[in-house]
């Protein structure tokens, strides 16, 4: 459920140290604090979205030690001494001053192929697609659809997302 309830035994704060998008952050957190809320509220990384609180929709997907996980059902404490990459860290955004101006190939694919509409599912979808391409550099349509089964999109009907992933696969040299 959205917010774990407080219990007296769990009210003592825990010190955690997490590497987020390449930089180390140290915080004292309530044991019940969800990783999603830690990223969004403590660190201001609001690109990771909350869509369902039940790990169905995948809008909150981030990389934890290189594996795509749903941050709405993990506790911040579980990320202690681990590495997290969020959408903000996937590639330096082109429009930020001083950035390299590069997008991750999957981000590029989503832009080129109109793989997003409202954009709410997109960060999670992109993380899952990036994971998919790490595991299967040249996926078939069916593999792409299966690989993205844990991410819901209500806008696109998924077809342009499939094309976006294919685009990225070609760009990454797999396709």
């Amino acid at each position: 459920m959205p917010m774990p309830r407080s219990t007296p035994s769990l009210s003592k704060k825990l010190a955690i140290s997490v590497t987020v998008n390449g930089g180390e952050v140290r915080r004292e957190v309530e044991p019940r604090l969800l990783l999603l809320h830690f990223l969004r509220d403590e660190l201001g990384l609001t690109g990771t979205h909350c869509g369902c609180e039940t790990s169905i929709c995948g809008a909150c997907t981030v990389f934890l030690d290189g594996r795509a996980v749903k941050s709405c059902t993990l506790l911040a404490a579980q990320a202690d001494r681990r590495q997290i990459t969020t959408i903000e860290g996937l590639a330096a955004p082109a429009h930020q001053p001083g950035s390299s101006g590069k997008l991750h190939p999957v981000q590029e694919g989503f832009w080129e192929c109109h793989g997003l509409q409202c954009g709410f599912c997109t960060p999670g979808m992109i993380i899952s697609a990036a994971q998919l391409l790490e595991r299967a550099p040249n996926p078939s349509e069916e593999e792409i659809r299966r690989g993205l089964e844990g991410n819901l999109c209500r806008c696109t009907g998924y077809q342009h997302i499939v094309e976006a992933v294919r685009y990225a696969a070609r760009k990454l040299g797999g396709g």
Partner: peptide
Amino acid sequence: KRKEDVRLITGA
């Protein structure tokens, strides 16, 4: 291609 996309695909 859409103008709104860069901010959305970067989580911004």
